[in-house]
């Protein structure tokens, strides 16, 4: 495992910890999109179907379990926890997330590395992950006061995607036959979606002012 990959996984982990910290300790999910969180829970459920079939390493198994458990925990908090759910900004979290699941499933059926159940679900999860951040970005645009933890959550999530691209470039040059169009193209699309956010995040950080995204 190269350093980019490890750093990517760690920023992904940090993003989840930041979000859980906000929800669990402050008992607030203000500014967090439930739609995005539900999509991530679906992404991990579809991708990690191989958890008990295909063993890679202890690291891999533990990380998969962490991402599965944390994504479903966050959804549970936002939907069921009696204090947290009251802080959910339902009025502004209006992205029609169900409508992007079906196209991703169709795409997974058409474009996959092998037409088997697990490979189709894997491709589906890759396509869905690429667009899963959209409801969150839309909600941020509509949020007047974006708190630091929410902004940091999205920043670390975006950093994870950028680092994965560096990881692929590194692997392309160091491993023979390492060509994976599906995850590369989907991964680049996913990273580009963060472009605008990164621009305004860095600007607010440089000028030491609160983050605000133009609508």
């Amino acid at each position: 495992m190269n350093l980019f990959r490890l750093a990517g996984d760690m920023t992904h982990l940090v993003s989840v910890v930041v979000l859980l910290l906000k929800i669990h300790t402050i008992k607030s999910c203000a500014g967090v999109s439930l739609k995005t969180q539900e999509l991530y829970a679906l992404v991990f459920a579809a991708r990690y179907l191989d958890l008990f079939v295909h063993f890679v390493s202890l690291y891999n198994t533990v990380m998969k379990l962490v991402f599965l458990a944390s994504s479903f925990t966050i959804v549970w908090y936002m939907r069921r926890h009696k204090i947290v759910r009251r802080t959910y900004d339902k009025e502004h979290d209006t992205f029609r997330h169900h409508f992007i699941v079906l196209p991703c499933l169709v795409l997974g059926l058409l474009l996959n590395e092998k037409f088997t159940f697990r490979e189709v679900m894997w491709a589906f999860s890759i396509y869905l992950e690429a667009v899963a951040i959209l409801p969150q970005l839309v909600l941020l645009q509509r949020t007047r006061n974006i708190d630091n933890l929410t902004a940091q959550y999205v920043f670390f999530l975006g950093a994870y995607r950028v680092l994965y691209i560096f990881n692929w470039i590194y692997r392309y040059f160091t491993e023979p036959h390492f060509v994976h169009w599906i995850s590369w193209i989907a991964g680049i699309v996913q990273t580009l979606l963060y472009g605008d956010f990164f621009y305004y995040y860095i600007l607010s950080w440089k000028n030491n002012v609160k983050l605000e995204l133009p609508a």
Binding site: K64, E113, E175, H177
Partner: peptide, 10 residues
């Protein structure tokens, strides 16, 4: 089996 070594990523 082109995808095998990719499935080691999260």
């Amino acid at each position: 089996n082109s995808g095998s070594n990719l499935k080691d990523e999260l």
